[in-house]
Amino acid sequence: MSFTPLSSTFAIAPQLGPADMAGLAAAGFRSVINNRPDGEGGPDQPLSADMEAAARAAGLEYVYQPVNGANIQQSDVDTFASLLETLPQPALAFCRSGARSTRLYQLATR
């Protein structure tokens, strides 16, 4: 599991799996945002429901906010900004490569 800090309270990561949730909690994260739509990567991609169950079992808050990376909408940015304000910190967002979550963060924190 690798992640990239973008601030003292926020980081991004590429695709994670349920087994990564305990490691995120051990690393000090308190919240996880999943920006990858279920099924986007085919049958090998973990389902959000499985990710949520593992995150909650590890004591993490979990939010599923699927976003089309090729067509980020203002409503996506607004929702992400609200999550950054309300979720326990530090938080981590993930998608396929981390680029979509990075872009959402950049747009939400302008």
Rank of each mutant, 00 (worst) to 15 (best):
R96K: 14
L6E: 05
N68V: 14
A11W: 02
T4F: 00
A108T: 01
L24M: 13
A81D: 10
T102D: 10
G59I: 06
A91D: 02
I12T: 09
R100I: 11
G17I: 09
P14D: 00
T109N: 12
A27G: 14
A81E: 08
G42W: 09
A25Q: 03
V63E: 03
R36G: 05
R56M: 04
A26V: 11
Q106W: 05
Y105P: 03
R56V: 05
A93D: 08
V77E: 01
Q74T: 03
E40N: 01
E61A: 12
T86G: 05
P43K: 05
P37M: 09
R110M: 07
G59D: 13
D44I: 11
T79M: 04
S7E: 14
L107A: 03
Y62R: 15
I12Y: 00
S48M: 01
S31N: 00
Q73R: 03
M1R: 15
A58I: 04
S101V: 10
I33Q: 06
A91E: 06
D20T: 15
A11R: 03
A57W: 08
P5K: 05
C95E: 13
A54C: 14
A93G: 13
F29P: 09
R96T: 12
Y62Q: 13
R36C: 08
L84Q: 08
L16W: 15
A11H: 00
Y105D: 11
M51V: 06
P46L: 02
L60S: 15
P43G: 06
G23R: 11
A19K: 02
A22F: 08
T102W: 15
L83F: 10
L104A: 11
D50Y: 07
R30N: 04
F80A: 01
A70R: 12
F80P: 06
G98S: 08
T86W: 03
A49M: 13
G41S: 02
V32Q: 06
M1K: 12
A49F: 13
R110G: 00
S48W: 07
V67F: 06
T86D: 00
V77F: 04
G17N: 06
E52P: 15
G17S: 09
